[in-house]
Design a protein around this nucleic acid. Sequence first.
DNA 1: AACTTGACGAGGG
DNA 2: CCCCTCGCCAAGT
Length: 120
Amino acid sequence: MNVNEKAYRERVYNLVKQIPRGKVMTYGQIAIVLGEGYTPRTVGYVMHAAETENVPWQRVLNSQGKCSTGRLTIPINLQQTMLEQEGIVFNAGGKCKLSEYQWFPEGFGPDDDIQTTLFD
DNA sequence: AACTTGACGAGGG
DNA sequence: CCCCTCGCCAAGT
């Protein structure tokens, strides 16, 4: 499985589609959940084409709870604006509290054993 | 094939 | 908080 295969990309999009309104995931978290073959960088690469895949791409942030910066294809701050409309609050530095907004798929939450080994 | 550049992340200073 | 280094993996040049 690699980024050139549709199935590989679909796994990323299908997971992002599950993120509830007002919640977020990080690139690294998505890579861990999807498992073997996925890394934060490849997830980011797949996400650059998410706008045309009908997925809530705005709900994916970096590990610090901030919107990604190298995207010149859309107006700066659009992502943050969209998330604010979902109720997420950002501080002056453009960062939100992941402890408050991060979403965990079934089996990967803070109460699951896997969490202690993968998300400590 | 070499080198650069990312929608990344962790660790140090 | 900022900056840098490294590890990471794929694309563009």
